[in-house]
Simulated assay, not measured.
Amino acid sequence: MLQAGAAGAGLALAPWQLSLAAGAGDDNAEQRMRQRAIPATGEQVPVVGMGSSGSYERMTSDNAEALRTVMKQFVAMGGTLVDTSPSYGRAETHIGEVARETGVRDELFMATKVRKDSREQTLDQFRASIDKLGEPIDLLQIHNFIGLESQWKTLKQLKDEGRVRYIGLTHYLTSAFDELEHQMSSKDMDFVQFNYSIMTPEAEERLLPLAADRGIAVLVNRAFNDGAIFGRVGDQELPAYAREFDCNSWAQFALKYVLANEAVTAVIPATSDPEHLVDNMHAGYGALPDAAMRKRMRDTIRNL
Rank of each mutant, 00 (worst) to 15 (best):
G79V: 04
M184S: 14
I167T: 01
P269G: 11
A24Y: 10
E57P: 02
D290S: 11
V98M: 07
N248S: 15
P269Q: 15
V164T: 08
A266V: 08
I38A: 07
M59K: 04
L158G: 02
S55R: 00
V47I: 07
V220Y: 12
A263M: 01
G147S: 00
D106R: 15
K256I: 11
V192Y: 12
S118E: 02
G231I: 02
A292S: 15
R296Y: 15
Y241I: 06
L255R: 14
G103P: 10
M59F: 01
A228R: 01
R296S: 14
P289H: 07
F74H: 05
L123H: 04
F194T: 05
S249G: 07
K113W: 06
P239K: 00
L2G: 04
E179Y: 12
L210W: 12
Y166S: 03
A263D: 13
M77K: 01
P274L: 11
P86L: 11
A29C: 04
D279R: 00
T265M: 14
D27L: 11
S249Y: 10
Q17I: 08
S249H: 05
G168N: 05
Y172R: 03
A211E: 13
G134F: 10
E149A: 00
F230H: 00
A266P: 05
P274V: 11
M293A: 15
D226R: 12
K132S: 12
N248M: 13
Q193L: 08
K132D: 05
K156D: 09
T93R: 08
M189P: 01
V218W: 07
V48K: 12
F74P: 00
D83A: 09
L148I: 04
E30W: 03
M297V: 15
T154A: 07
A254L: 08
N144F: 12
A287S: 14
A217S: 11
E161K: 04
E120Y: 03
N225D: 12
D138Q: 12
E244K: 13
R36A: 03
P239G: 06
A7F: 02
I268K: 14
Q193N: 00
T271H: 09
A270T: 00
A291E: 13
I142Q: 09
M77W: 06
L11R: 05
F109Q: 02
L108S: 09
L11N: 02
G78E: 10
A217D: 13
Q44E: 14
D106I: 09
D226S: 10
I216W: 11
T265P: 09
L288N: 12
Y196S: 12
M50P: 11
A24K: 01
D246V: 15
G42F: 03
H276P: 06
L67K: 04
P39L: 01
F194I: 00
Q31L: 04
F191P: 12
L169D: 00
A37S: 10
G284I: 03
E205V: 01
Q151G: 07
L277Y: 07
N195I: 03
R127G: 01
L20E: 01
R58T: 12
A91K: 07
S186V: 11
F245Y: 12
P269M: 09
D178S: 15
R165E: 07
V75Q: 08
N248E: 13
T84E: 06
I95L: 09
V267F: 11
Q141C: 14
D117I: 05
M189V: 03
S118M: 04
G215V: 08
S185L: 09
M281A: 05
G215D: 06
R294D: 08
L208P: 03
D26T: 13
